[in-house]
Design a protein around this nucleic acid. Structure first.
Lengths: 228, 228
DNA sequence: TCCCAATAGTGATATTTATCACTTAATTTT
DNA sequence: AAAATTAAGTGATAAATATCACTATTGGGA
């Protein structure tokens, strides 16, 4: 099994401050797993007893509303970590993490993480910074959901998806989402999302190639996202 | 000036794990201040170099949207702390904290807080738990803003306001908000908020006495907040 | 490879919500 | 206490968005 000391993960996020010894300890105790498309890494309300390091693949973090609708809160990709909030706060997981494609994930037991938190203040601080940043983004999101019309939110979401996932060799946003998932991200009906996407295509702002989306005019989207 | 060791704040939140020595250190360096209604304790985008302990009074945490509208993200009252996210993540403040009434606030310099974080892992952990909880609430909020109609959100907000501020001696929710502020909390037009409040009154679910709101049928509000 | 189920797309319509243009009531200010 | 602001409330209307009922298309499994 691969060694954490050589893992690409340590280049990212909070893990980059871990010492060689800490990474060796992680290596000894970690388990690698494959999550198939559609499966959950974590499930809302469940407890977890470790940290997930995403090696490869993409997933969505969702929340099931009391009305039965799924809200997508955030997207996760290779290099990201999952479950640290739950470990640190000692609370059940708040969101579902569902694979958008097959994923390779490492699981590091809670005990090792807590040891590193005790030993390595910088690691601890980086985890806090990660959570703080998420809170900051969440607050922005609340404001936009509450006050911006659907069209603006769609524009914002398209920009954000390109930001997160980058583009493939044909300049399309490098993630495959159903129209329903796009709708569940911006908080609207699937039909409304479809119509607004069609309008953006008609206006030459984006191109739609099957499920793939190519942004043609980033400035136009930026303006739309701010209500112009 | 009053002594932190005897302050009611230490009964609440992260501060309850502080030692006598730590509280004495806080006492020596703290400053007490009065914030008048309408004034800001913190302002979006500014840096702060300390922690605010709310002794008394209420404030709103807001975000100014790109369209110029104010979104209320959270309410704060006596016993709450402000600014710890900014200190821990070493980033500017993300929200405005505006007094809803005259407030008494203590300011503890960043250095003392960071010292306590180093010395006292439990204090550090409690701060993290506080931020984690905020993130969890924020995610719930995103979901509700995105997917629930305005009526449901108003019902939810009224319940939440009573939860946070309690009731006065006439069973009214113990906070004075303008209709505009209520609208900015649920993310709707002021006129819409007014109309929906009137409807709730007409249906006997709440009573409106000037700016004061009395919840008459909590169950009805709970049902409404879940879309029934 | 064909079939089935899921997804995408469209049009008509209903519902929700915002906007505008006011009146009335409540606070401040002078 | 009167005047001037500011906030609350109302009705008419416009705009945004959801819902329903469908057809077309796509993409895996048997």
């Amino acid at each position: 099994m691969s060694n954490c000391s050589h893992c690409i993960m340590k280049r990212f996020n909070a893990l980059k401050t871990l010492t060689h010894d800490e990474l060796e300890r992680f290596s000894d105790h970690k388990t690698s797993l494959i999550i198939k498309k559609g499966e959950n890494i974590m499930t809302e309300g469940n407890s977890i007893n470790g940290l997930y390091c995403i090696q490869d693949g993409k997933c969505k973090l969702t929340k099931l509303n009391t009305n039965g609708k799924e809200q997508i809160i955030k997207f996760i990709k290779g290099g990201d970590i999952l479950g640290h909030r739950s470990i640190l706060s000692d609370e059940p997981v708040g969101l579902n993490a569902t694979a958008l494609e097959d994923m390779r994930v490492c699981f590091i037991p809670k005990g090792d993480i807590l040891d590193s938190i005790k030993d390595n203040p910088q690691f601890s601080l980086n985890l806090i910074k990660n959570i703080s940043l998420q809170l900051s983004h969440a607050n922005t999101s609340i404001s936009q959901m509450a006050q911006k019309p659907v069209k603006d939110r769609l524009a914002e979401t398209l920009l954000s998806l390109e930001e997160i996932f980058g583009v493939d060799n044909e300049d399309c946003i490098d993630v495959i989402l159903t129209r329903e998932e796009i709708a569940n991200t911006i908080g609207t009906a699937t039909e409304s999302a479809i119509r607004l996407l069609s309008n953006l295509k008609k206006d030459g702002v984006i191109n739609l190639i099957g499920k793939k989306i190519k942004i043609l005019n980033k400035n136009a989207l930026k303006n739309l996202s701010e209500g112009y």
